[in-house]
Design a protein around this nucleic acid. Structure first.
Lengths: 343, 343
DNA sequence: ACCGGCCCTGAATGCGCTTTCAGTAAGCGC
DNA sequence: GCGCTTACTGAAAGCGCATTCAGGGCCGGT
């Protein structure tokens, strides 16, 4: 005969010969005569009882599964941030529901909706928002009732339009700093490996870079900018494209390290040397880049910390009702993938 | 005045002036007069109604959040597998709860217990099991009632002791194949960068490698094996240790690519060249290794597919009650990090 | 020995939803 | 036009648990 699908609290209570209420109290550590408590615990153990989290949540006990939505766990950038989130979550005895949207705004909204249905105590949005105001509004509409219902929301690296606690990488300032650093190395002809223009991160990084160059009187022609997905293959393709266009750039700035890795691969496959033939710089400082040959010059972001802070923001009550905003990172780290011009 | 904490189905029903049951049916796409359905949908929309997933689950509707437990999402190996899992999950309109154990068996069991409480329809265990039979038994005890209750379990890369659907990398055969490949290159003095002996994967890979060497009359002395965590820094430290010991190995086999990356970094920092001074080989074929300089020789595993297959196994009914077992990967991929001896 | 008060236990209620079950209105054939 | 089937709607039960509300045993005070 099949064992019962699920052992319920009632079964335990019956086995221990106490009332359902007493069993509940014993299991939850409320004051109960030690003898009874032992009986209940023993019965629960014997029956392999596991409380039904849904029933528990329904009955009022807050449940402990927070939602995290990112673009793509496979990307080391998001993996590192998610790692930080999970570290803090784990320390607080929380489960994490992780979802990947693959940069599809529709999926993102669908996930928020599911998380809302789960009555997750907190939702974290990791990664760039979308330039299209339509999506941001739809997202906001989804988030609003959640927040009204007491839900907590924090975002990482997301455009300011959402009025929630935020952890923001210094995208614009970091890119500007990188521009200065590259100018200091003597570069004057640049190319940029850009990402999907729909992402706000792209606008910020590209804008910061371009403006800083402009201050030095260096222009960035449309032909010097190639758009591609924020992936290794995107970077590879963009770099290849640049090469076939006959670009004369002495330095390539990839908007993410992952793209920079692809770019370096393309250069290698074309028999070009980094940084002797061309300098390459990235953004993010994902862990792997310091172990590349040559190690990658990049704009450093404390990725794990980004995630940790976001989780902390979501977990701590924000009494002053103003949203909190943390800005982090943005320092240029010069490594071997960039060199002085003509050296 | 505060908006109500949560809009319930009853609110929607009242607003649409229909009964609760009708509202439920309208929302769930059951046959209802179009006119009524529209009224209900409009009311739901206006009130920003989101069904309570807990209530829904409790009332019998199966819910759609599967649990995935891995050692560490930050590790590209697990990230890639998790990516595959999420791809299939997403295609089936499932949410994924991802948890990282950081290789702590106690946490692993705790997570299984939480997932069981959540009544997740499926649990996936990603990553090596533990040699200590005590933990495996405890895990089994936790899993047993879950399976009896109709839960589905699949594991990736986990020792056979668990009687559940499995996707197994060819750890032993792959390591043996690597041994042969390295022998063919003329190597006779080897060192191994090993992992925590508590992990079954370590025993399999190390065993396969050692046995194949033995067949060729090449012994692996204890001094040639260094144990370290399965991390980049672990590999770095182990390689450094090996160097300070004055190892005479011409070839280093790291049990994972991540360790191999650390090893290469250590060699570089010591001014040694790969593969001229020493050959390095890894295991897993995580995506990044083909972009290293030199690209890493390794045992290939179709990581994303591993995750996809596991999810598929968990999703498909297993009518024949025998557990299904998929073995995958194990082919040696020779790249630039290994060279013929003396060349 | 008696009563007030305290602490522990058990019965009962409700969380929000799905799902029978029964009831009612509409539709059909004769 | 009557009886019957068909189709939809509404009332109500119950999923498993936390929790409130009474009731009952026990203690100390007098």
């Amino acid at each position: 005969m099949q064992p019962r699908a699920h052992v319920t609290l009632e079964d335990v209570a019956k086995a221990a010969d106490v009332s359902l209420a007493t069993a509940s109290r014993a299991l939850n550590g409320m004051r109960v005569t030690p003898q009874l408590r032992d009986r209940v615990l023993a019965a629960a153990e014997k029956l392999a009882y596991t409380p039904n989290a849904h029933a528990r949540a329904l009955a009022g006990a807050s449940h402990r599964t927070v939602g995290v939505i990112c673009h793509d766990v496979t990307d080391p950038y998001f993996a590192a941030i998610a790692g930080g989130v999970m570290r803090v979550a784990g320390a607080n005895d929380l489960l994490v529901m992780l979802a990947s949207t693959f940069r599809d705004p529709e999926r993102e909204i669908a996930y928020v909706s599911m998380l809302r249905a789960e009555r997750a105590p907190a939702i974290l949005l990791i990664g760039s928002g979308f330039e299209d105001a339509r999506w941001e509004r739809a997202l906001e509409a989804e988030l609003k009732p959640y927040l009204d219902g007491g839900g907590r929301v924090a975002v990482v690296s997301r455009h300011r339009s959402l009025k929630v606690d935020s952890v923001l990488p210094e995208n614009r300032a970091g890119a500007a700093a990188m521009a200065r650093a590259l100018l200091d190395l003597g570069h004057r002809r640049f190319a940029v490996l850009s990402g999907p223009p729909a992402l706000t991160t792209v606008a910020d990084r590209l804008g910061g870079f371009r403006e800083e160059l402009a201050k030095a009187g260096v222009a960035l022609a449309p032909a010097d900018i190639v758009e591609a997905p924020f992936t290794r293959d995107g970077g590879y393709g963009a770099m290849t494209e640049l090469l076939t266009r006959g670009s004369t750039a002495t330095c390539v700035f990839a908007l993410t390290d992952v793209m920079a890795i692809g770019a370096c691969a393309a250069l290698r496959d074309q028999g070009l040397s980094v940084p002797n033939d061309i300098s390459v710089a990235g953004f993010d400082d994902i862990p792997i880049v310091r172990d590349l040959t040559p190690p990658l010059t990049t704009v450093a972001l404390p990725l794990q910390t980004l995630g940790e802070k976001a989780m902390e923001l979501a977990l701590t009550e924000n009494n002053g009702r103003r949203r909190r905003l943390l800005r982090m990172g943005g320092e240029v780290v010069l490594r071997g993938s960039t060199a002085k011009v003509g050296s």
